[in-house]
């Protein structure tokens, strides 16, 4: 109990110290109320001395002094401009440092659209992670995508995704692809595969993955040249979305003149 009390005292002290710079200046309302109270007390005292009400009020006002002089003194005490500037700076620093976290967790059962003409394959994938939105800085994204076969649930890939603004471009197969955010409304990152066949196990990059912002689909590229799109449920509905989302991208990847529709196989 004693320890808890000490901790609470310390926390209280920290909070007070932290709040000190953002203390607001004395409000006019408080000041007016204080002067009014003083005036009333002073007037009552003068009335007790036997003065008439008017004389008492005049005397009380005289004793109170000039309001402008007191206002100047109060400015010296609180320095409201300094406090407002300090509060603004502190607010900006906090906004710069503190993110707005969003938990991203999705478990999906979808269909893989092989880009090399293979038939679609049912598969499940899980997206987990945190998205940190900053007001003045680049957003951070730490996602982990676990992709496994739907029946067995084996983990085939576990990949951390970079924040979108970090991925400005990547090179594969001698081609440089632009992944500038805004142009491409998706998350992008390298794909790693865990190799458990030999000891020690190691992870190596095998390609790149682009995950749509809603997390329902992703485009996966592999170094060996296979391209496929992983989509969530309802493949027929998703196919159009995928073409809209990845079509331009795929055309860039596969080269001009390549029909995207021909490469996205559907049932």
């Amino acid at each position: 109990m004693k320890l808890n009390f000490e901790i609470s005292l310390r926390v209280n002290t920290w909070i007070r110290v932290a709040l000190r710079p953002i203390r607001l200046p004395l409000t006019r309302r408080t000041l007016r109320r204080e002067f009014l109270e003083h005036f009333e007390d002073c007037r009552d005292a003068q009335l007790d001395k036997g003065l008439t009400e008017r004389q008492a009020e005049e005397k009380a006002l005289e004793l109170l002094g000039s309001a402008s002089g007191v206002a100047k003194l109060l400015k010296l005490v609180y320095r409201p401009r300094i406090y407002l500037v300090r509060a603004a700076i502190l607010l900006l620093v906090l906004l710069y440092l503190l993110p707005w976290p969003t938990r991203i967790t999705r478990q999906m059962y979808g269909t893989v659209y092989w880009m090399d003409g293979s038939p679609p394959e049912a598969i499940s994938f899980t997206v987990e992670g945190w998205k940190l939105d900053y007001l003045f800085r680049d957003d951070k994204l730490n996602l982990e995508l676990t992709w496994g076969e739907s029946e067995e649930g084996d983990k085939l890939f576990q990949l951390p995704l970079l924040k979108p603004k970090e991925a400005l471009g990547y090179e594969t197969g001698g081609l440089l692809f632009d992944a500038t955010p805004g142009v491409w409304d998706a998350y992008f990152g390298p794909v790693y595969q865990n190799d458990d066949l030999f000891e020690p196990t190691y992870t190596y990059p095998i390609g790149h993955l682009t995950l749509s912002r809603d997390g329902t689909s992703c485009l996966l590229s592999r170094i060996d040249g296979n391209w496929y799109v992983l989509a969530a449920n309802n493949p027929s509905a998703n196919e159009n979305e995928l073409r809209a989302l990845y079509g331009e991208r795929l055309e860039n990847i596969l080269g001009s003149g390549t029909s995207v529709e021909a490469n996205i196989t559907s049932e």
Partner: peptide
């Protein structure tokens, strides 16, 4: 006001000219 009254009871008239100056 009470503080100024206490002060005056002790014979000190520091805030006599401008009583509101005690608030700063």
């Amino acid at each position: 006001f009470e503080l100024i009254s206490r002060l005056e009871n002790r014979g000190c008239v520091f805030f006599r000219q401008q009583e509101a100056a005690i608030y700063p």
